[in-house]
Amino acid sequence: MSEEIVPVTKFLEDSFVYTCTFEHQRGHEQFIPQHVLAFQFSGETHIQNENGKLILKKNQILLAQKNQLAKTIKIPDSNEVYKIISVIITDTVLQQYAMNNSILKDKNYTGEKTFLLKPDILLKSYFQSLLPYVEQSEKISKQLATIKTYEAIGLLLNLKPTLKSFLFDFSEPYKIDLEKFMLQNYHYNVPLEQFAKLTGRSLAAFKRDFTQTFKTSPRKWLQEKRLTKAYHLIQEKKHKPTEIYLEVGFENLSHFYSAFKKMYGVTPASIQSSS
């Protein structure tokens, strides 16, 4: 392995994210606010979202829709570093692209929110062209970032013209069943504002509807639900506390331990040792 390669996660002009690592890592970002187009140069990315698990493998492309929750795990190959480049495609850039190219959206998108694409030679060459920017530069101009993002949009539409409704759907999340959504997504560690947005509500409306539905506050319910799930995983499934605290929605181990002991009167480790 080359000694010149240094593990890094780099952001360029809020448009490109480059990650290179030798270690198995859990991703931190769980809310996807903008469309993401990602190319896996080496290693694998395991993605968990509302539809289950998806694995992005070497030389594959992933397209993820904005306004969704996802958890990722970065896994290097046995003899290669983990390397991926993501292009963040914002509504601002898409709206300008649509205006410049006289694109009119014919219908709202209702298909899969995250899926894999088999890249053609043009998209592969595009991502190769990004490597010098993300590996050798600390920053690029906003103008250049916009040009390269426009190129990505054009290549996507060239590869799959039906992606027009996916890319150019600027509608906001609509009001959905709050109880069903929260029972499916409580384990995502995101602010209440993002839960509110994804259920099609203002924060005030979310808190009001939540209290009416669950007869308690969102923060209390979330903590109790996450701790109940953690207890089950430790007691019944024999998982270690260090393996599951992130999975159930806690940000750090110390907070998980203190909250668990406050609710159950014992530490997670004591539950593990007695099970």
Rank of each mutant, 00 (worst) to 15 (best):
T45N: 04
K207G: 03
T149V: 09
F250M: 04
H46I: 08
Q272H: 11
I75R: 07
S15W: 01
I147W: 04
P268W: 02
F206P: 00
Q184R: 09
I47R: 04
L192W: 05
M182R: 06
Q128R: 13
P173W: 01
D106W: 11
Q184C: 07
Q223S: 09
S141Y: 08
Q184P: 01
A145H: 00
E50M: 07
K10H: 09
F170M: 02
A269P: 04
K107T: 13
F22L: 10
E13A: 11
M182K: 05
T9V: 10
N79Y: 13
N101Q: 09
D14A: 12
P268N: 03
G27Y: 00
Y97W: 08
K238R: 14
T146F: 08
G43V: 02
L54N: 06
N59A: 07
K164I: 09
D91M: 04
F256I: 05
I121Q: 15
E247F: 13
N185T: 02
D169V: 01
G111P: 11
K237W: 12
P218T: 00
K261L: 06
Y264W: 02
S275I: 07
L37V: 05
S42Q: 05
Q30I: 01
A98C: 06
F127I: 10
E80Y: 12
E251N: 10
N49I: 06
K240Q: 08
P173G: 05
G27S: 00
G200M: 01
K197Y: 05
G154H: 02
F210I: 08
D169L: 04
F115A: 10
R26I: 11
P161C: 04
L227H: 02
P161A: 01
Y109A: 06
I121T: 15
K229I: 10
T146G: 08
I88S: 09
L246N: 12
Y186E: 03
E80A: 13
V6R: 15
K124T: 14
K113N: 15
H28G: 15
S275Y: 02
L104R: 15
F214N: 03
Y257R: 15
P33F: 01
R219K: 14
